[in-house]
């Protein structure tokens, strides 16, 4: 499958984020849906998914219009994560 360290790290980070959500939910349940700024009901898991999906598109957009390096996109993505988890 032609593994490299960066791709392995990428998948490990995603898996860890999902496990974190499970552990968080187990020790401090709060997974009931709430209605956020977009008018949709989301649980914590949904917010994680929206964050990751958005991160993907932010990086692709940065690559298409500005190019490497991607530090700016990373900063934007972290901002997006914070926004989604607090407001959506």
């Amino acid at each position: 499958m032609a593994w490299t360290w960066p791709t392995a790290a990428f998948f490990i980070v995603i898996v860890c984020s999902i496990i974190t959500m499970g552990v968080w939910e187990k020790f401090s349940p709060g997974g009931n849906p709430r209605r956020g700024v977009f008018g949709i009901d989301t649980t914590r898991g949904d917010r994680l998914f929206i964050s990751w999906l958005g991160t993907g598109f932010i990086h692709l957009g940065w690559l298409a219009f500005i190019g490497t390096p991607l530090w700016g996109a990373l900063a934007l993505a972290i901002g997006w994560f914070v926004f989604v988890f607090r407001k959506v």
């Binding site: 499970g22 939910e25 187990k26 649980t43 898991g45 949904d46 998914f49």
Partner: peptide, 9 residues
Amino acid sequence: FLGDKHLFF
């Protein structure tokens, strides 16, 4: 169960 909706999706 935990994660049921996400699994379905």
